[in-house]
């Protein structure tokens, strides 16, 4: 019994140690959340205000001033990420001249470099983030970097890449997809159909015929859907 009691005592010590570690992490996480939330909210508000002023700037010199200010307040990695998130939000929610201005700002500040760096990161979720950011910003130059990810070992990376290449190059993207013989989930198909719905340019009959001849069963059924829902010229 003495040996057994010592064993129980050891387990209790381990459990208490873990309990204390968990408690410390919980309190630290909460403390961090309170500090972080305040900082993030302030930074986000500032970036949003500046971006709103930027798209409504009356003169080019005024825009330039705001741009410089944005560069100045976005030095660290988290600051740059907040800027990128807000630029993507503005780009997604505005159209016309404002959207073009935001896109120019994105290109001039080379914010795409943050996303491209994520594509090269070994963590699958960072790759996904990078793909989504680049496709949201319609950064067509990243197309060739995303295509190889269609064969990535992670299913979620592949799925996001499939949607992104259609988002970036519409029919051409579909052509590249058709070369793949892998199955496509309903989620991916529905997302692609929705992207093509939103797109002002429609598929030509020839492009659709090419899809119908694809080796991939998923592409053939996607082609049938596209035809059925009048997404062709």
């Amino acid at each position: 019994m003495i040996f057994e009691d010592r064993f129980i005592l050891d387990i209790i010590n381990i459990l208490l140690l873990f309990a204390m570690v968990f408690l410390t992490i919980i309190l630290y996480a909460r403390f961090n959340h309170i500090i972080d939330r305040k900082w993030k909210n302030n930074q986000r508000n500032l970036v949003q205000t500046l971006l709103a002023k930027y798209v409504n700037a009356p003169t080019a010199s005024e825009s330039e001033k705001i741009k410089k200010r944005l560069v100045k307040i976005s030095k660290s990695k988290p600051q740059k990420q907040i800027l990128l998130d807000e630029v993507a939000n503005f780009y997604d929610n505005f159209s016309g001249k404002s959207s073009d201005m935001i896109k120019d700002l994105y290109d001039e500040m080379a914010l795409y470099k943050i996303s491209i760096k994520k594509l090269k990161n070994f963590r699958w979720h960072n790759k996904i983030e990078g793909i989504v950011e680049l496709s949201t910003m319609n950064h067509k130059k990243a197309y060739d970097l995303i295509v190889p990810l269609l064969r990535h070992k992670n299913n979620d990376v592949r799925r996001t890449a499939k949607i992104a290449i259609v988002e970036l190059k519409k029919a051409n993207g579909l052509d590249d997809l058709a070369k793949l013989t892998t199955e496509m989930s309903d989620w991916t198909s529905l997302s692609i159909i929705s992207i093509l719905h939103r797109s002002p340019t429609k598929l030509t009959k020839a492009e659709l015929a090419r899809l119908r001849l694809s080796d991939s069963q998923s592409m053939r059924s996607l082609a049938a859907h596209l035809e059925k829902h009048s997404l062709t010229d």
């Binding site: 009691d5 209790i12 208490l16 309990a19 968990f22 919980i26």
Partner: peptide, 26 residues
């Protein structure tokens, strides 16, 4: 022996609940 067993069960229960709260918090 009894008190040890009781503390063992109690400390496991608390540790496990705190772990769940940690999951919720993070």
């Amino acid at each position: 022996h009894f008190w040890l067993l009781l503390i063992l069960v109690y400390s496991f229960s608390v540790m496990y609940s705190w772990m769940a709260i940690l999951m919720e918090e993070t």
